[in-house]
Design a protein around this nucleic acid. Structure first.
Lengths: 214, 214
DNA sequence: CCTTGCGCTGAACACGTGTTTAGTATTTTG
DNA sequence: CAAAATACTAAACACGTGTTCAGCGCAAGG
């Protein structure tokens, strides 16, 4: 019915859904009003309810649509081709890298992902659970291939790496003002990845039995 | 006027502020109503406005109070004693560790920090800016003392480490269901820290010129 | 004493919200 | 072509919201 990236689907229903996605992403579900969504979509407020039943129905539809789009990122990362890529050293990218490659610059999906993960609704929880399972699988494969170092606590390691990656999306704006580059643009991403890769491959601290920094 | 942990301050004004903090933290500023706050504090709705002028005034007061409490964590981490601790190898703890040590188990402050960082209001931005400056300073000192490895991009490295730490608070619930332990409890924290320290000191991946995992 | 100020309340007000209803174009269908 | 379903709208409704207002009880101070 609708592709992941939603090429040109100018039916009113899709227009409303897209407008709601953008508004929800940037301002939150509760502060956005049905009248605002209707105005942004160029339709009457009543039509919004006519198509989605209620505001909650619209929210559910937007959640489902966003989750579907976001899952395409992990679909290819967790696919069959992955093992081969790992073996060849082509390596999989991070979630942030996938975002830059897959979605256009002004896409509201990063911001919407933020909202999905923060408001602990089922949609966000399910998304995280799927991605976590994928991450664990990939890490296990990498350990078997000798690309990743084994660990005594694979659950924590997978969560740590996934969560670090998501932090780039969750704190995108703060990172941008801190380092002067948006990490979700090609320029900022390469700069970010360079230093992150250094830490992930060689570490950052001396081992004298002591801890990470503040 | 009020200590970080706010011992026993049973004036009605403080009671209202604490009730609002707890409700705001768990449900968001917009979904919580003045009448709910009043009920939770055991007062009339009108008294809330009498003390804080408006709901936005209350929100500002709660923001200021929370920021003050949260800053105590970084105050000691960035203090003068830090350099000595670093030299002695006692090392500073992470933000998550400080949370566990400083705040009681049921404290709403982690959840409120989440809200502060997500809604891009000035309060959250200022908080992040201060913490980022502290992190950069600490890292610089650690590099000078040979505890941390130097990097060509200190801005990115500091942001990376700070953001990873904050991710534990932002995604606390998802991490809890993923690994089966709340990382903001002593038990979960030690488990978390163990593997994280391993990555930060020795890395997790082979260096063949390739990237982090998904 | 009383009277001034303060903490505090119940009831009301103005307004924006999600939603409904009745009705009109427009397209689809038999 | 006629009829039924669908896309869509304007106007209104019921309700919850933040906020205001007039007044109560009570301690402080002259």
């Amino acid at each position: 019915m609708s592709s992941a990236t939603d090429g040109r689907d100018l039916t009113a229903r899709a227009t409303i859904r897209n407008a709601a996605l953008r508004l929800f992403a940037h301002r939150g579900h509760d502060t956005v009003t049905v009248r605002e969504i209707a105005a942004a979509a160029g339709v009457s407020p009543a039509l919004v309810l006519h198509h989605f039943g209620s505001k909650d129905g619209l929210r559910a539809a937007v959640d489902a649509h966003a989750a579907e789009s976001l899952d395409t990122i992990f679909a290819e990362l967790g696919g069959e081709e992955l093992a081969g890529m790992l073996a060849r050293g082509e390596a999989t990218t991070s979630v942030a890298e996938s975002f830059v490659q897959v979605f256009p610059p002004g896409s509201p999906l990063p911001a919407y992902l933020r909202r999905l993960l923060l408001t602990n609704d089922p949609a966000g929880a399910a998304l995280f659970a799927r991605w976590y399972a994928t991450t664990r699988g990939v890490l296990e494969a990498m350990v078997e291939n000798g690309i990743a170092a084994p660990t005594g606590d694979p659950a924590v390691r997978a969560a740590f790496l996934l969560v670090n990656d998501l932090a780039v999306i969750l704190l995108r704006e703060q990172i941008t003002t801190a380092i002067g580059d948006d990490p979700l643009t090609p320029a900022g991403l390469t700069r970010w990845t360079k230093d992150v890769t250094a830490v992930y491959t060689g570490g950052a601290f001396a081992d004298p039995g002591k801890e990470p920094p503040p």
